[in-house]
Structures are given as C-alpha cells and as structure tokens.
Amino acid sequence: MDAQELLIWVRGTGLQIAAAVFVLGMSYRMLHLLLIGRKKSLAEARGSEWAGGLRTMWQRNFVLPRLSPRGRFTFVAGYVFHLGFFVTLFFLSQHIALFRAVFGFGWPALPRGAIDISAVLALAAMVALLAHRLVDPVKRLLSDYQDYLTWALSFLPLLTGFMLLREIAFEYVTLLTLHIASVELLLIAAPFTNLAHMFSTFISRWYNGAVMGFKGIQT
C-alpha cells in the first residue's frame, strides 16, 4: 500500500469506521445514561432541581477565585486548551469545508492568523498541563494511564494539524494521513474513555446542581 492508497483509506473506510464507533458509542452511552432516570420524588422540595442544575452549569465556569493556586493553574490552562481546541476545530477554513461536506452546511472561517494563535495556545496549554501533572505530586498520584492516553489522543491531532499547515518534517501526504488518522483514533477512543466528557460534562454539572438545589427529602 503506497502513501496515496493509505490516504484514500483514512479519508474513506477508516473515517467511516471511526465515525461509526464514535456515533454508535456516544449515542448509546449518553442515551443510556439519561434513561437510567431519577426516581420520582414523592416529597415536595423547597428548591427547584432545574433552577439549581442550570445555575451550576453556568456558575462552574467562574470558580477561579475560590480555587487553590494548583487548582487555578489547572483551571486557566484547561480553559485555554479547550477554547484553543474549539476555535481551531470549528473555525479553520479546511475544517469548515469538512463539516459542509458531512452536514451540508458551513459557517464563516476565522483568518489563518487567528487559527495559528488558537492552535499554539492550545498546544502550549496541553504541554503545560502535562508538565504540571507530572511535577505536582497530588496530580501525579491522581493520574492513571487513561489520563495520559487521552492527553496524547487530544494532543496528536493538534500537533499533526499544526505541522500539516506548515509541512514540517514530512510531506503533505504523510502529514495529512497522520492528522486524519490521529483524529480517527480520538473518535474511536472517545466513547470508551473519559473523553466522553465532551458530551456528558454538562449533564453531570446539571446533576450536581440539581442535587444541591433540591433542598428537600429524597424519598
């Protein structure tokens, strides 16, 4: 199999496999999670679950002042990474062309300069987060192999994408193949790892808030 055939495979069959695993796994996991449901409360509560849940979903974005220095670093670097990742994923012209091809609609792209900044910020934040995870004794103790695996799976698409736009170290064909393949690995792993938080994070925030806002007896 030569470089072209490999590229055709990752753009075709490989992507179909990855999409199938990702969509099937995620839709199963999320729907199953929701279908577990919550027992109907027979007692009347003073607070509202929905108000509490929604409030927490929003307020968890602004916990910075209440955190320890360690927490603050993780929080800030984490936000920089996520924002950089989203801007790069959803506003690079080439990515929008992909969404247009799959979903049938697109949106305006950001200029390349903005994408360069967002990608570099995301990469730098990830490196800083990994370093912190390795250096900080508490975080190191709390980390297991999955944390490192998901770090690598999120880092690789950013790194290969950055290299691809500049043709660093390898040829375009090779870099494009690596970039698409790294995204496919991310998609395949997502439903089975803590990467599933990309869908569940707001559900769990709501749940936390709902529990706190209930203010009553659970029957």
Binding site: R11, L15, Q94, A97, L98, A101, V102, L176
Partner: peptide
Amino acid sequence: PLSAPAADVA
C-alpha cells in the same frame, strides 16, 4: 476538498 471524507460518512 482533501480535508473532507472520500466516502459517505454521513
């Protein structure tokens, strides 16, 4: 485009 799938992913 090269960045889009070569097969029907949707």
